[in-house]
Every structure is written in structure tokens, then in C-alpha cells.
């Protein structure tokens, strides 16, 4: 097994606000990313998936803290704990962009509207790799070419608003890859795109991963996209990672009731004769303030029983590479032992 590139151990993130109690947006998350592999972070809105990803780049809002846990990033010459770095420190800035970069859902808001995309990519290359302008532009053009921007040399002189949504997303990917990062964080990169464009971008990301060998942390709410692109999956619900593991294992035999329910909520392509009624999860996601001390899913879980609201389920190993936090898993075992 390859050495992990990024290891998140027991990380929590809390948001403080002047008039209200602190909110623990993410609690005790463990994640591991290996080079060349994609970990998909899945969950519905407000589950803490984006916050988790931003914590890796220390792009959190000012009122967010990481009170416990570590984010170990392997720089090649020893591990750095990102959780201990200041978000504007030199060390963090050296990681950002060069070692870890990020692409967003809406490229328009992360590209500068007053600079051509070529200039924006050039700038990153010049900043991190100390090339001169001409060399940088050569790199830019070959990058844009690599991410599938047709007529890269001309398009480098285009402003973001002159490009279609798909091309903008490609340009942003080129920017993110300008310094051949070891880790790419993709926050819902295809959500705003049409389905055919989405398929193209997913293809591109896989292709680039093969070429560059970077690890990818892919955030999405779409289980279809996860199934297409991920090697590993971590399912989040209200700040908890409830289940994680190899994508094939988790899809084949989801163990946590939330994962199961989520998968049953997605309509499958089926002939009319075989079509079954969807079984949605009852109720709605409670506010993080009302999250039970125990399992976050208690209020909507069809199997909830005595210990669920009060005792937080431990991480339980199910398979070689498959972990879930659910009392059902341990409870059954205890009963068997008794």
C-alpha cells in the first residue's frame, strides 16, 4: 500500500458566534488520501463536507476553529500538521496552490473577471516556479491544451466571461494544476454544469489524475458522480462521517442506515414494470444545535434504539477497508457474545 499523502485524524471544527453557543460543524473526522486515488466526500447540504475540505487549505471563516485533531500532509520531507499552521503563515501559503489546490462549483466567482485566463495561469506559474513570462505562457498554453481547451493559444487571451461554463471550469482546472499539486480538492466542480459537460469534466479529471498522479478530494452530493469517479467514499451526515471505505464495498453493502437510506432515495434507471416506489428518509435534517449527543442520525433513523441518542457509536471495522459508526454493528456482536 502506498504511503498516505494526507491523513486527517480526529479533526473537529467549531464555529463560534458572539450571541450563541458554539456549533460543532464537523466532529472527529478521520480521512486518508493516497496519491493517485480519489476520495469522495458525500452528503446533503449542511453536512459539513465543504467545511472539512476547506479546513485542509485553512480557508475557513474567521469564526471557525479546529480545536482538536490533526491534518498531516506529507510534503515528501516529513509531515506537516496543517491544523497547527496559521492560515496566513508562509508555510501554509507555500502549500496552498503549489502542493494543494482547489477547484470550485462556480468558476466565474473564482476567476478574476478583469484578467485573461492566460494571465491568471501565468501568474501562478511565475509566482511558484520562478519562470519568466514567455516560459510561463508556454506552460500555460500546454496546460490549457491538456485540459481540453480548444485553440489554447488563442483562448489564453480570452476573458472568463467570453467562455462557456464548461470551458471556464476547464480553465480553472488548468489554474489548479499549474504547479502540479499533489492534492486537488474539488468542491462540487460539476454541480453547476449540464450533464454532458459534467461527463466531460469528470473524464478530464480522471485523465489528469492518471497523468499527474495527484490525490483528489472530491466533494459532491451526487451519488452518481461518486460512483463514476471515486476510489473511496466517506459519507457525512450533520458533521459526522457515518461510513467510509472502498467505493465498491460501500455501494454494494452499505452498513449505516443513513447510507442505505441515501442510496434508496436516488431513482434508479428501471423499466416501468420493475419500477419501485422510492423510500425516502423521513423528516428533515435537524439544525446542528439540535444534534443529539449520540448518533447524529438518530432522529430520522428507522432502526434507532436505546443507546443511539446518548452514546456516540464508535468506528467499527466492517471489512478490510470499510468502516461505519453505528450501534447496530456493535450491538449485534455484543448480543452474540452474551
Amino acid at each position: 500500500m502506498t504511503k498516505p499523502l494526507l491523513t486527517i485524524n480526529d479533526m473537529s471544527i467549531t464555529f463560534t458566534s458572539p450571541d450563541e453557543a458554539d456549533i460543532e460543524a464537523v466532529r472527529q473526522v478521520d480521512l486518508t488520501l493516497t496519491p493517485g486515488k480519489t476520495l469522495a466526500l458525500v452528503g446533503e447540504s449542511g453536512c459539513g463536507k465543504s467545511v472539512t475540505a476547506r479546513a485542509v487549505l485553512r480557508l475557513l471563516d474567521k469564526n471557525a476553529k479546529i480545536p482538536t485533531g490533526e491534518i498531516l500532509f506529507d510534503t515528501g520531507s516529513g509531515a506537516v500538521d496543517i491544523a497547527k499552521l496559521k492560515s496566513d503563515s508562509l508555510a501554509m501559503r507555500a502549500l496552498r496552490g503549489a502542493e494543494i489546490s482547489m477547484i470550485f462549483q462556480e468558476p466565474m466567482s473564482s476567476l478574476s473577471p478583469v484578467h485573461t485566463i492566460g494571465d491568471q495561469v501565468d501568474e501562478i506559474i511565475i509566482l511558484h516556479d520562478r519562470l519568466n513570462k514567455k516560459q510561463a505562457r508556454e506552460r500555460t498554453v500546454s496546460l490549457l491544451d491538456q485540459v481540453g481547451v480548444p485553440g489554447a493559444r488563442d483562448r489564453a487571451n480570452a476573458y472568463p466571461f467570453e467562455l462557456s461554463g464548461g470551458l471556464r471550469q476547464r480553465a480553472m482546472i488548468a489554474m489548479a494544476l499549474a504547479c502540479t499539486p499533489k492534492l486537488l480538492i474539488a468542491d462540487e466542480p460539476t454541480t453547476a454544469l449540464d450533464v454532458t459537460t459534467q461527463a466531460q469534466i469528470l473524464d478530464l479529471l480522471r485523465q489528469l489524475q492518471d497523468d499527474f498522479g495527484m490525490a483528489m478530494l472530491f466533494i459532491t452530493h451526487d451519488l452518481g458522480v461518486v460512483a463514476e469517479i471515486a476510489d473511496d467514499i466517506a459519507v457525512m451526515y450533520l458533521g459526522d462521517v457515518v461510513e467510509q471505505g472502498d467505493v465498491f464495498d460501500v455501494f454494494r453493502a452499505p452498513k449505516h442506515p443513513y447510507t442505505q437510506a441515501l442510496m434508496n432515495s436516488v431513482p434508479r434507471l428501471m423499466r416501468k414494470a420493475e419500477r419501485q416506489r422510492l423510500t425516502p428518509i423521513k423528516g428533515t435534517v435537524p439544525s446542528p444545535k439540535d444534534r443529539p449527543v449520540g448518533c447524529a442520525f438518530t432522529s430520522r433513523c428507522p432502526h434507532a434504539f436505546a443507546p443511539c441518542p446518548t452514546v456516540r457509536p464508535e468506528r467499527t471495522q466492517i471489512g478490510a477497508d470499510h468502516v461505519a459508526r453505528c450501534h447496530l454493528l456493535t450491538h449485534v456482536r455484543e448480543e452474540a457474545m452474551a
Partner: peptide, 10 residues
């Protein structure tokens, strides 16, 4: 139809 109580915004 399961009747749901409105949840209050965060």
C-alpha cells in the same frame, strides 16, 4: 403522506 413539523432555520 408523512406529516412533517417545520424545522426552524439554522
Amino acid at each position: 403522506v408523512d406529516t412533517v413539523q417545520p424545522t426552524v432555520h439554522v
